[in-house]
Design a protein around this nucleic acid. Structure first.
Lengths: 196, 196
DNA sequence: GGAAAGTTGTCCAGAAGTTAGACAGGTAGC
DNA sequence: GCTACCTGTCTAACTTCTGGACAACTTTCC
């Protein structure tokens, strides 16, 4: 397949996912209709099926794209404070809190539990904690490289603390995002560098 | 034509013009070959002809796109210093000088004269001062709206001074871009607001 | 000065992708 | 249980892209 064809193909996929995102954001996944989606993307219904195969596949691709964007955004935040664990964790937590507030899809992904049947993820049961596990694994490698002086056990504890604490604040906010982020940063530093 | 088809079409045009720009930047317009262009864009030679019709048409589209980008960039620079004529002119001059230094195609457009047969514009004789006239006309409307207190005669003199003085410095530089831009700003203010 | 190589622009048959309409089967609301 | 709607599949027609061929012309090389 030539590069040009690939470009056209990804253009089509992006248009469809953009349109799907808007429709889901407006009325929810349950009310998303294939005909509406095709019209919104300026394409025939058949083309949607040729590209994605099924309605569920669109939901999966939508969630996947959002996950990737989320992780990329998180990496950018962390990279900005490279070398300062507390600041990096605070920036990461701030980013997660903001994303959860602004991006309904991300909040759904981050907070949906195994048996809680969130509408979009009713069929994607294994996905509920996939992002969390991916983020944790990915952060582990990231922290190991950036701060090699932290031993693996402390690193594991610190990452679990950072991710789950932040999600906890998304589910049940206690203070402002700014203050929460700072507190999470402080807690994680203490976990990563115990006094004894 | 559906919006999707339009997107695919403009994607094709952009890819082709991007590839053409690179080839022209590397070896010059004279050595640009249709076969190379098609390969670089990942498309068949016939598709290039279907889209643009001829080699000259590609040159024309290339120049046109660069002109538009240049004018858009110029507008952004001016908008950043809205209300301060001297700073706006200096910013505009700085932008033009930088563009001429970095973008060979723009320098060619800005400095090519009527009878000087610059390679890319050999066939586009009327284009040599088209950008200058367009920029002047466009700046006239811009300045008239932003600084209505300047009378039309002074406005016309000031704009001619700003554009031609800057181009003169592109052709024959006298000092650093920064210093030149400041001096042009000062000169234009004196032209626009004569003491008597 | 002329042959060889290269280039532009055109033509065409076939491949690939898109469209619109029809239809079977399933589901929700009444 | 009936109606209306929706998903997913099929198909014929249409549009776009491809790749190869070819004539006319220019450049390069001998």
């Amino acid at each position: 397949m030539t590069p040009y064809r690939q470009s056209v193909r990804s253009l089509l996929r992006e248009r469809l996912l953009d349109a799907a995102y808007d429709l889901v954001a407006a009325d929810g996944w349950a009310k998303m209709r294939m005909t509406r989606l095709a019209n919104a993307a300026g394409v025939s219904r058949q083309t949607v099926y040729t590209e994605f195969g099924s309605r569920d596949a669109i939901g999966e691709a939508l969630v996947l794209r959002e996950e990737e964007r989320f992780l990329n955004g998180l990496r950018e935040e962390l990279d900005a404070d490279i070398g300062d664990l507390r600041a990096a964790v605070a920036a990461g937590a701030r980013f997660m809190l903001r994303q959860a507030a602004e991006n309904h899809l991300i909040k759904t992904i981050l907070t949906s539990t195994h048996n809680g049947n969130e509408e979009l993820l009713a069929l994607l049961t294994t996905r509920s904690d996939r992002l969390v596990r991916t983020a944790e694994m990915w952060l582990d490698a990231y922290v190991a490289e950036t701060w090699p002086m932290i031993d693996p056990a402390s690193r594991s504890l610190a990452i679990e603390t950072a991710v789950r604490l932040t999600i906890s604040h998304i589910v049940q906010p206690a203070a402002s995002a700014e203050e929460t982020a700072e507190r999470v940063g402080e807690i994680v530093v203490r976990v990563a560098f115990p006094s004894r």
